[in-house]
């Protein structure tokens, strides 16, 4: 894990995996309820936070948000996914790098919850209504489950972290 080339290759791979996961999720119907999805791409982002660091993860998130808006034609959804992505990434960075004893599961839950909250807040701002609080409560409840799921996936994937990154995070938390 040294050199710019391998980092470039890795981040390109991460972006492509995130895009594919995001597309596959959009195929699962959830009965017309917007914002309800598993967010498996988030587990890849979590892994990249542990593996590639803060700077590259921020770039990965931005690239993912804009690329999926361009490719899957969701320009309407751009402010929502951007707000959700930025806020959840900030919270996950804070928890992973500053929080003591927070594992990938806790970071995943917090990221998913803030992602959904940010999205509903943007919707409230656009629609100028505070009547979406009920929906926010439901989305937060769903995010606990899906966040725990993605966090667990990230934790299982962390087995493949290179040794120096593993020492940085796993030993600190043990």
């Amino acid at each position: 894990m040294n050199g710019k080339t391998s980092r470039l290759a890795l981040s390109a791979m991460f972006v492509s995996v995130m895009m594919v996961l995001g597309y596959l999720e959009s195929l699962i119907p959830v009965g017309g309820v917007p914002g309800m999805k598993i967010g498996l791409a988030n587990s890849v982002l979590l892994l990249s936070l542990y593996w590639l660091g803060i700077g590259i993860s921020i770039q990965l998130m931005l690239v993912k948000v804009f690329l999926s808006a361009f490719m899957f034609g969701g320009f309407m959804a751009l402010p929502y996914s951007l707000a959700g992505g930025v806020l959840s990434l900030l919270v996950m960075i804070a928890l992973i790098y500053l929080g003591r004893g927070v594992s990938a599961i806790g970071a995943g839950v917090a990221g998913a919850v803030t992602h959904n909250i940010a999205q509903v807040l943007v919707a409230m701002f656009i629609l100028q209504t505070n009547q979406l609080v009920y929906y926010m409560a439901i989305l937060v409840g769903v995010a606990i489950v899906t966040g725990a799921l993605t966090g667990t996936v990230a934790k299982m994937l962390m087995r493949y972290l290179p040794k120096n990154r593993k020492e940085l995070f796993m030993l600190k938390q043990a």
Partner: peptide, 29 residues
Amino acid sequence: MKKQDLTIITIAALLALSLFILNRSGILS
């Protein structure tokens, strides 16, 4: 799963429930 994770989950659950109560109490309507 660490203890801190449980705390995060509990905080999130509390948040969801308080939002639910906020909606049901009719303050926001």
